[in-house]
């Protein structure tokens, strides 16, 4: 049977490209029998769905960080300089 090491690699790869049929079936068999790989696949799908659905949301991206006052001033100056 396929090892967990190999299964983990395919669990990731199927998020990027369709797996060849033989690999896909072997993975299905492994995951059906292996609780750890099942949990890993579930978590990766959660993580991937979350990031893909929110990645391009300009309002939500990145946890409310703000430029510091110093950075703000530096940017203002750079902009003003560029216009002269």
């Amino acid at each position: 049977m396929m090892t967990c090491r190999e299964a983990a690699r395919l669990i990731s790869q199927e998020l990027d490209a369709p797996l060849p049929r033989g690999r896909r079936l072997a993975l299905r068999l492994h995951v059906g029998l292996c609780r750890a790989c099942r949990a890993y696949r579930r978590d990766l799908r959660l993580l991937t769905d979350w990031v893909r659905s929110r990645g391009q949301d300009l309002e939500a991206a990145g946890e409310g960080s703000r430029l510091s006052e110093a950075d703000r001033r530096r940017l203002e100056e750079a902009l003003a300089g560029a216009r002269e």
């Binding site: 991206a61 990145g62 946890e63 960080s65 703000r66 430029l67 950075d71 940017l75």
Partner: peptide, 11 residues
Amino acid sequence: VERYGDLLYRY
């Protein structure tokens, strides 16, 4: 900077 700085920075 005032209007878009934080948005760009967060992104």
